[in-house]
């Protein structure tokens, strides 16, 4: 039987930011991330952001699907089917990176076809080989990715930052 431990570098230390020319990638830790699905969720949360909408502050919602949002730092909600909404705590399920600097979008464009000229109601997209929720936050970009894909995503971002010089 094969031991592949040496073929895979141990997971990176996300607490140290990545630096590149004109870009910094930092892991941030939202207090709460809540998945909320409902037929009328976009009526209940009309401010849920798409692309290239700009989020501000600490608390906001992202539009994921026709009937689903991701609430960031919203109130604590009981999981399950309540009041016509399906609710799940996903705080630890999604890892969040913040990309700051003039070349932030250029970095993201290494991994996905995206343009500020092409709006989208949803912030979900495929990028760097994984599912991302990608949006503008103040003067930066933020992305949420499946937690277990975090190390691979971090590795790719670092490789691209090295290439961008």
């Amino acid at each position: 039987m094969r031991d592949d431990s040496q073929s895979w570098a141990p997971p990176p230390d996300h607490s140290q930011p990545l630096h590149g020319a004109g870009v910094t990638v930092t892991r941030i830790l939202p207090v709460r991330q809540t998945l909320i699905s409902a037929p009328d969720i976009l009526t209940r949360q009309p401010a849920a952001l798409g692309w290239p909408d700009v989020a501000t502050g600490d608390r906001y919602s992202l539009c994921l699907r026709r009937d689903r949002v991701l609430e960031i730092n919203g109130p604590e909600r009981a999981a399950g089917w309540h009041d016509g909404q399906a609710i799940s705590d996903i705080t630890d399920g999604l890892i969040v990176f913040e990309i700051a600097g003039a070349a932030a979008l250029a970095l993201i464009q290494r991994g996905t076809e995206i343009s500020e000229r092409q709006p989208s109601r949803s912030v979900q997209r495929l990028g760097f080989g994984t599912e991302l929720m990608l949006y503008r936050w103040e003067d930066r970009l933020r992305l949420h990715a499946p937690r277990a894909d975090g190390p691979a995503l971090w590795h790719r971002l670092k490789a691209h930052l090295d290439l961008m010089g």
């Binding site: 039987m1 094969r2 031991d3 592949d4 431990s5 073929s7 895979w8 570098a9 141990p10 997971p11 290494r110 080989g129 499946p146 937690r147 277990a148 894909d149 975090g150 190390p151 691979a152 590795h155 790719r156 490789a159 691209h160 290439l163």
Partner: peptide, 29 residues
Amino acid sequence: GTRRGQAVNPLKRLELEPQHRAAGAAMGE
């Protein structure tokens, strides 16, 4: 491009991977 080495077909990683490695685990896909 950058899809080389570990990035060719990256694996999902466990939260407890450091604990497993510390316990002398042989890791596999």
